[in-house]
């Protein structure tokens, strides 16, 4: 599995972890990871600590996730991106849209 999604025990957090490459080939899996989750006030944590490469489709996917999160009044946090990934996120000015930690 290149994508794993896990709901925390208290049911308030969902962690979506991405592997080394975050590109178009993951779009189906990525969508499946959250599309069925309709619980309100969830915190979505996108774990990018493994990710080394990210293309524009990954950014598009994150934006779609953001739309989904907003639809269900949740919160999106991008967790521990590598320096390269962080730069790409900053170029896309994602730091204005979501929390990057």
């Amino acid at each position: 599995m290149t994508i794993s999604s896990k709901l925390s025990t208290d049911g308030k957090q969902i962690v979506i972890a991405i592997d080394e490459r975050f590109d178009f080939s993951l779009h189906q899996q990525f969508r499946d990871a959250y599309s069925s989750v309709t619980t309100k006030d969830l915190t979505y944590i996108l774990d990018l600590r493994q990710t080394q490469y990210m293309d524009s489709s990954a950014l598009g996917m994150i934006l779609l996730l953001k739309d989904h999160v907003q639809l269900y009044a949740g919160q999106l946090i991008i967790s521990k991106p590598s320096d390269t990934v962080r730069k790409i996120l900053e170029i896309a000015q994602f730091q204005r849209l979501m929390t990057i930690e």
Partner: peptide
Amino acid sequence: LDDFVGVIINTSKQSLETMT
């Protein structure tokens, strides 16, 4: 450049929606 990046990301997003 920022606008360009925005356009690229938007295109990606729209494409992914199209994909859905």
